[in-house]
Design a protein around this nucleic acid. Sequence first.
DNA 1: TTGTATGCGTTATCAG
DNA 2: CTGATAACGCATACAA
Lengths: 320, 320
Amino acid sequence: MTIATVAEHARVSRQTVSNVLNTPHLVREETQARVREAITALGYRANQAARQMRTGRSRLLAVRIEPTRDGINGTVLDRFLHGLTEAAAPAGYRVLLYAAADDTAEIATYDDLLAAYDLDAFVLTSTHHGDVRTSWLAERGVPFVTFGQPWGAPASHPWVDVDNAAGTAAATRRLRDTGHERIGFIGWPAGSGVGDARRSGWATTAGPACAELDRSTVDGVAEGEAAARDLLRLPEPPTALVCASDSLAVGAVAAVRDTGVAVTGFDDTPVARVLGLTSVAQPLAEAAARCVALLAGVLDGGAAPEPVLLQPSLVIRQSA
Amino acid sequence: MTIATVAEHARVSRQTVSNVLNTPHLVREETQARVREAITALGYRANQAARQMRTGRSRLLAVRIEPTRDGINGTVLDRFLHGLTEAAAPAGYRVLLYAAADDTAEIATYDDLLAAYDLDAFVLTSTHHGDVRTSWLAERGVPFVTFGQPWGAPASHPWVDVDNAAGTAAATRRLRDTGHERIGFIGWPAGSGVGDARRSGWATTAGPACAELDRSTVDGVAEGEAAARDLLRLPEPPTALVCASDSLAVGAVAAVRDTGVAVTGFDDTPVARVLGLTSVAQPLAEAAARCVALLAGVLDGGAAPEPVLLQPSLVIRQSA
DNA sequence: TTGTATGCGTTATCAG
DNA sequence: CTGATAACGCATACAA
């Protein structure tokens, strides 16, 4: 069934049907009604391929699906993806998945996706310092939005992020409010935008007295446990620990068992729920919806939209 | 850049370029080489939209992304999705995502996806008894494969599944081998294909002496804990528990704490790793690859391929 | 406001 | 084995 079938059924020309669909203000109400009736009666749907050939737009968004690293933080991307798919549909977009081992492979995929499928835009996650992907896309004028700030680079593209510093700050404040004064931090090595932000939220809220209670390590349960043990060995050990991820926090929980030391994590993953771990929750569905909205703005409107910084929330459980 | 650019560059007609791409055996080697050279030199990629208009095939696979229920078992689908995306790319397919609240909404989405995007095939997950989705697709001759057996229905379509009964059987055998004789089971209410299969693996391996140690409940951590407590209250309580999911197992682990009762879960989720829970692992990447292979067979070949039943493996940790 | 003609890039048909 | 031509379904410029 084509646009011609509809035209015939509504006794108008093909062009009129097209107008009803794309420029309804050009068509008399009465005619519009007749055409729309025919459309629903026939269950007509415009063929995307043909439309794309003509307009050069595919109404397709691409997003990378990453391997679930240690699996604990993997659910974050999973939920973001779901939110993206749900938000895209009402806006008339669909989400195309691609996998890539690293940033270089990802760029090669851009090339393929752009040439073959005429993708309208990309959604990038896990932005980091010196991200080659954003510059590649920007140079070629490909629309994209990042979930994650353009760390270290001028904000030359729309982005959505969660206020990481506010998240750890809220966790730290909660600990202070419940009487803790020596609050330690277990985070990632300096240099990662997200990691640095999460550390700064703790640092400013815990105060300079806690400065020596700062530990850095790569992400992981075992690493978190080791860092926590290290802190507990201090002459004046912390009575509470703020962790940059649930993975680290899970390790910390194991290390502090039966000591009464409070622990908070980050991302409110299923593991946190199971372990009763207080954790910072990112509004992922909202972040995804904002990404779609920003992209829709770029694609339809054209003006570069303002970045969006969302506030996380603290989910309080037994651990703190 | 179009096929014409390549033709010009290789000094042949457009059609010859197309032949090199689609029916290379019709073209002289020498000419082929020249054309291929031009293709790589120019970085040419066939436009899918145009190709699709002509052939009616989009080289697009659709798969539903489900909301992460309790989050523990959600990672399973996540990993399957990743595997699917990775396996599809080399086969020349891309994966399109869609969300749907329930089976009815999903069918409405099929309609849209089929009409607008000309999808080549669907990958269905979470098949169940009386699945209306499979019959809808089958009636319309839409190619699809299910990850999950056609429970209760004749196998009228290709499918891939993991041998659920073998999984719980392996877990039960492990428990017997380590000296357990009273082995209980915590699973879902009868009627779900997956649940029944997992129960039967335990039942046949544990033997009739354990028949009274069977409990049913909806999935969830709290539910698993309640069921485990119930079993422990028996005059002759079990010394080991086989659970139909990691969610149930996590609850069971909490219930049996300090009793020395062994527990096994199902799906080898991150939570299992963190808790040291012995669990049955599904070969998800392999399952995804087989789904793609089956679909490729249907789409390219035509003959209905044989179903695939994969064997799970038992990941042994401290809990059993 | 509606109808007519054209082309998007590709592949299939058919003649050379 | 190679080259010309039509057609896929749609949207746009233009004429009516």
